[in-house]
Every structure is written in C-alpha cells, then in structure tokens.
C-alpha cells in the first residue's frame, strides 16, 4: 500500500541485529529462559543420536563388543562429567518445560521471572544431589 510513497530507507538487517553484542548482557530473564531451553533441547537431541549410536553397537557388532565399548566409555572420567552436564540439561529442560506448559494454561504469567529463577534453583539442587550417583 505504501510502496509508492516509501522513501529510500536503510535496512539495518539481521547482521546488525546480531552485531549488538553488548546487548546480550542486558537480555531479560524471559529471553534467557528461552535461550537456555533451546540450548538444552539441542543438547538432548544431540545426545539422543549418540545414545542410539552407542546402543546400536549391540546390533551391529555383537553383545561382547557392546559390553566392552560401554565399560570403556564408563571408565573415562570425562564421560562421567559429561553425564552430569547431560543430567543438568535434562533437569532444566524438564522444569522449564513445566513452566512453559503452565503459561499455555495461563497460569503464572505474571510471575514468569520468579518461576524461571525457581527452575534454575531447583535444577542446581537436583543436579548437586545427583552428582554422587554419577561420580562414585
């Protein structure tokens, strides 16, 4: 409708949006919750592929090889530490998922910030409680 009277304007574009690096620090809690939820979701789906790959060795290679591979992986310290990371991603994704489902039912929309902090705090508590199970 306004194509004709449109003056020559400057399209700042996506690059400049992304280029505002200094603004990252002042993102609001709701935005951080979104980023964290997306990130942990990606971590979980990436893990799922690896998980199926490891489980698949039981079919492709045989039972003994599968046991050897799994024992070998579990004996590595880095794998156990990564498992804690995976657990943390799962716990946060689950708790924040509950928060998002609550929004869909229009519950707690006015306390979304506090709910985000609560899901972070609960995740920390649960992961800390779970650390002995992974490292011992």
């Amino acid at each position: 409708m306004s194509k004709e009277r449109r003056v020559e304007s400057y399209d700042r574009g996506r690059i400049e949006d992304l280029g505002r690096a200094k603004d990252w620090a002042i993102h609001k809690p709701g935005m951080w919750a979104f980023y964290l939820h997306r990130f942990t979701g990606l971590v979980l789906s990436f893990y799922l592929v690896m998980h199926l790959g490891v489980l698949g060795t039981g079919f492709w290679l045989g039972h003994e090889e599968y046991t050897v591979i799994l024992q070998g992986l579990e004996s590595l310290y880095i794998v156990r530490v990564l498992e804690i990371g995976l657990f943390a991603a799962f716990v946060f994704h689950a708790l924040n998922g509950i928060r998002i489902v609550m929004f869909d039912m229009t519950v707690g929309l006015d306390i979304q910030e506090q709910l985000f902090y609560l899901s972070i705090a609960l995740s920390f508590a649960i992961v800390l409680a779970g650390v002995p199970f992974f490292l011992l």
Binding site: K28, G30, M31, A33, F103, Q112, E113
Partner: peptide
C-alpha cells in the same frame, strides 16, 4: 515463544 520481551 513466551519470551516476555514485549511485556518487559
């Protein structure tokens, strides 16, 4: 996506 940017 319930980012709440608009509300803020």
């Amino acid at each position: 996506h319930t980012q709440f940017n608009c509300t803020e």
